[in-house]
Amino acid sequence: MFPEYRDLISRLKNEDEHFARAFERHNELDQQIKNMEAGLVPADGLTIEHLKKEKLQLKDSIYQILRKTSND
């Protein structure tokens, strides 16, 4: 996710607790969704859709933080 910000992501994960939590939650959701879609974890389409929306909101939030921080 966002390879152009790889160095900044590494720095923020260590320096910004809010960013680190959002990034970790995004990764957790990504894995959870993959497991559900693969049938490893039982889930209905509505649950998967809800998790995908949460993941997308986190991705947007992470991107906004990255853009703001890179412009400082």
Rank of each mutant, 00 (worst) to 15 (best):
M1A: 12
M1R: 03
P3S: 09
P3G: 09
E4Q: 13
E4P: 03
E4H: 09
Y5A: 08
Y5V: 03
Y5P: 01
R6I: 09
D7M: 11
L8I: 06
L8Q: 03
I9L: 07
I9Q: 07
I9R: 01
I9Y: 06
I9F: 07
S10A: 14
S10C: 12
L12M: 13
L12Q: 02
L12F: 11
L12P: 02
L12T: 03
K13H: 05
K13G: 01
K13Y: 04
N14D: 12
N14G: 02
N14Q: 15
N14Y: 00
E15M: 09
D16A: 06
D16T: 00
D16L: 06
D16V: 01
D16C: 00
E17K: 15
E17Y: 09
E17G: 00
H18D: 15
H18F: 11
H18S: 13
H18V: 13
F19I: 04
F19R: 04
F19Y: 04
A20R: 15
A20G: 08
R21M: 03
R21K: 13
A22C: 06
A22K: 08
F23A: 09
E24K: 15
E24L: 11
R25W: 02
R25T: 07
H26A: 10
H26Q: 12
H26E: 11
N27A: 09
N27R: 00
E28P: 04
E28V: 14
E28M: 10
L29P: 02
D30R: 08
D30C: 05
Q31A: 12
Q31G: 14
Q31N: 14
I33F: 00
I33D: 03
I33P: 06
I33A: 07
K34V: 11
K34C: 01
K34A: 15
N35S: 11
N35D: 13
N35P: 06
M36A: 07
A38T: 05
A38N: 14
A38F: 01
L40D: 08
V41K: 04
P42V: 04
P42N: 14
A43L: 09
A43S: 11
A43W: 02
D44Y: 02
G45L: 07
L46R: 14
L46G: 14
T47Y: 03
I48K: 01
I48W: 00
E49Q: 13
H50T: 12
H50D: 14
H50S: 12
L51Q: 05
L51M: 14
L51A: 10
K52L: 03
K52E: 14
K52W: 10
E54G: 03
E54C: 01
K55S: 11
K55N: 10
L56V: 06
L56N: 11
L56D: 02
L56I: 05
L58V: 04
L58H: 03
L58C: 04
K59G: 05
K59I: 01
S61I: 01
S61P: 02
S61R: 09
S61E: 09
Y63V: 02
Y63D: 06
Q64M: 09
L66W: 04
R67Q: 15
R67P: 04
R67C: 12
K68L: 09
T69K: 12
T69L: 00
S70E: 12
S70V: 02
S70F: 05
S70I: 10
S70Y: 08
N71F: 07
N71E: 12
D72T: 08
